[in-house]
């Protein structure tokens, strides 16, 4: 449907090396466009350096309640009805704790003095870098929710600003299996899962495969730090084989990877075992995504 291919990199939990692999792919593909959908704790910008400052836009989530102190008569009905303990009183005046407010607007409804109104609240910030590559990312403000919607917004920001000549878009996905992950998967051509050879890593992988299958996208699996638990790596390989999912590589545990990451450079720019493994995975990924 689209000329350019969209590749999403996912893992279950954080800390599996998803961002390291994403960064390596961006380098190898010389990708002109990429995005970080891990809006709760974005990390990709730390390793994929941009030469220019970003253009930032505020991101609005659910509205939150505000109390006009002039109109507030101090009756306390709002506190009585608030289910989230979000309204507190000080010297017979009432105030909203924005961190606890869920935006249900019950207080606005019950206030007899019409002193309460709902107002847009900034729940995050979107960043768009344009040089040397197009890079879309965002960060949720502390204590804010709705990350699924923000993930969709990050992807939209990227697609809306793409150059015509772009061939591949690399997206670093969100951890977990919840709403932000679904928002990440929606509309991509292929999902590459970076699995960890642990019991919980395997169960995370199975859940993501299950979810990705529902979207009818291409799926491939690779294992990071495979040599930290060979039996579990074999289990992952076998699972993929039994379920007809391409198993396209194993990345060894590599101290150089930490070294590279801490210097903000990609493992494929260095002569190291993990970098070599990722290069092979990249080649196989291209074969799969370009066949489609």
């Amino acid at each position: 449907m689209n000329k350019y291919k969209k590749l999403l990199i996912l893992s279950g939990k954080g800390g599996t090396g998803k961002t390291t692999v994403a960064c390596a792919f961006i380098n190898l593909a010389q990708a002109k466009a990429y995005a970080d959908c891990d809006v709760d704790a974005p990390n990709l910008h730390l390793v994929c350096k941009q030469s220019q400052d970003s253009t930032n836009t505020d991101y609005y989530g659910l509205q939150k309640a505000h109390i006009d102190p002039e109109k507030c008569t101090g009756c306390g009905l709002c506190t009585k009805y608030c289910r989230f303990d979000a309204i507190y009183s000080k010297e017979n005046k009432y105030f909203v704790d924005p961190f606890s407010c869920e935006g249900c607007s019950v207080c606005e409804f019950v206030c007899p003095a019409s002193a309460i109104f709902m107002k847009d609240s900034i729940t995050g910030e979107m960043m768009l870098y344009s040089r040397p590559s197009l890079f879309s990312t965002a960060c949720l403000k502390m204590g804010s929710g709705n990350s699924g919607k923000l993930v969709s917004a990050v992807k939209k920001q990227l697609y809306d600003n793409l150059d015509k000549g772009c061939e591949i878009v690399v997206i670093d996905g969100s951890p977990g299996i919840g709403c932000p992950v679904i928002a990440s998967i929606s509309g991509v051509d292929m999902v590459l899962i970076v699995a960890e050879p642990s019991v919980s890593g395997i169960s995370d992988m199975e859940r993501i495969i299950d979810t990705s299958n529902r979207f009818g996208v291409l799926i491939a699996v690779c294992v990071n730090k495979y040599d930290t638990n060979i039996p579990n790596t074999l289990k992952i390989e076998k699972y993929c084989h039994n379920n007809n999912i391409p198993f396209i590589g194993k990345i060894p545990y590599d101290k150089m990877a930490v070294y590279a990451t801490n210097r903000g450079i990609s493992i494929v720019s260095m002569d190291c075992a993990s970098g070599e493994a990722v290069k092979n995975i990249y080649t196989k990924t291209l074969e799969i995504i370009n066949k489609a």
Partner: peptide, 12 residues
């Protein structure tokens, strides 16, 4: 035919 389960916009 394949309706995916509800992935609701949740709070965190």
């Amino acid at each position: 035919s394949d309706i995916h389960p509800g992935y609701h916009g949740h709070k965190n």
